[in-house]
Design a protein around this nucleic acid. Structure first.
Length: 154
DNA sequence: GCCAACGTTGGC
DNA sequence: GCCAACGTTGGC
């Protein structure tokens, strides 16, 4: 069972939206980055848990834990001409992009902020992808040790 | 709003 | 296949 970090902008879709969604679940779609696509397609499994991270907001940081309830399937937004993420190069026979489904497990008791994560960037969180300079991937793996350490901060 | 980082595109 | 130009991301 692997762990992940999913970035999202709360002004577009944040933990409040997830909590208000039917079944507290949502389709995680619209990812258009090949490295993130590969994580989704090849590694994210049903039952995996992920941190939900809020970016581009007042208090960037980890706000919740979510669980993968359906692994990769072809991203329908890539087939929809009216969708902002439409990609003519993705076909149903050979889909280029993938989505998955998550459900809110629980909110953290408090936001574990980016500055706080950074303060451990030279020790416990040394290889955490999101802390590496300029990493903009919206889906990144989190090691078991990192996962446990971050939860211990809560 | 600025700007650094970095992925993508396209000319050659 | 190189690399400059361009676009996007995201912290500040």
């Amino acid at each position: 069972m692997q762990h992940w970090l999913l970035k999202t902008e709360p002004s577009t879709f944040g933990v409040d939206d997830l909590a208000a969604a039917p079944g507290k679940s949502t389709h995680w779609d619209g990812i258009r980055n090949y490295q993130a696509r590969n994580f989704i397609r090849d590694q994210i499994a049903k039952g995996d848990e992920a941190f939900l991270y809020h970016s581009s907001c007042e208090l960037p940081g980890i706000v919740a834990i979510v669980r993968v309830i359906r692994p990769a399937y072809p991203d329908p937004t890539a087939f929809d001409r009216r969708d902002a993420h439409y990609d003519a190069a993705s076909s149903k026979d050979a889909p280029r992009w993938f989505a998955f489904e998550i459900r809110l497990k629980r909110r953290l008791k408090r936001v574990i902020t980016l500055p706080e994560l950074k303060s451990h960037a030279h020790r416990e969180l040394a290889s955490m992808m999101i802390l590496r300079g300029g990493n903009r991937l919206s889906v990144t793996p989190v090691s078991d040790a990192q996962w446990r350490f971050i939860l211990s901060l809560e």
